[in-house]
């Protein structure tokens, strides 16, 4: 515990810079609707459990699963979606790059489904570690984190959203 605290203290300036970078990227993504215009940055990797029986997902499948329209992964296992709603704005980046929508629009979309009793929004994870942890432990779990954070063997990348 103390080790991780001291490590996070040491990493704080780096993390802050990283956060700023991601924010800037998100902003750039928002300004230039076309992904090809944005600077190279960290891509988001859509990850699933190694036992899920899924090796690749199309963009349409990722959309259908994260927007609660398709409730299973293509292998048949029930999907458990996880959003990365941490401070680094990955959630904004993810939905902006996936469907061109702002967080408010995604909220509004889910308000319609939840309050008409037609489903539950994705689990809101606070950190990439939490996403990894859930995806590693639940067969149907599907989430996204920055590509460089993916630890081989723990989870499987099934789609990459390029900046």
């Amino acid at each position: 515990m103390s080790r991780s605290r001291s490590r996070s203290a040491r990493e704080r300036p780096v993390r802050r810079r990283l956060r700023l970078g991601v924010l800037a990227l998100g902003w750039a993504c928002a300004v230039y609707a076309s992904a090809s215009l944005t600077a190279a940055g960290s891509d988001l990797a859509v990850i699933v459990n190694s036992e899920s029986g899924v090796s690749e997902l199309s963009r349409a499948e990722v959309i259908n699963i994260f927007l609660g329209r398709q409730r299973r992964l293509p292998s048949g296992v029930a999907a458990l979606t996880v959003d990365l709603a941490g401070p680094d704005d990955e959630k904004r980046q993810f939905y902006y790059c996936l469907v061109g929508k702002e967080p408010a629009e995604i909220n509004s979309y889910w308000a319609r489904l939840v309050f008409s009793g037609r489903g539950a929004a994705p689990w809101q994870a606070e950190s990439p570690e939490e996403v990894l942890d859930i995806v590693e432990n639940y067969k149907g779990a599907i989430g996204y984190i920055e590509r460089h954070r993916v630890v081989d063997g723990r989870v499987k990348i099934v789609h990459t959203l390029a900046q």
Partner: peptide, 22 residues
């Protein structure tokens, strides 16, 4: 589903009260 339910033959008709959703 069994019980008191929303009715949605018309798109949106079961979320008319949820102003935030439209």
């Amino acid at each position: 589903r069994v019980g008191r339910l929303g009715y949605d033959v018309y798109l949106m008709s079961d979320s008319r009260d949820v102003g935030y959703s439209y």
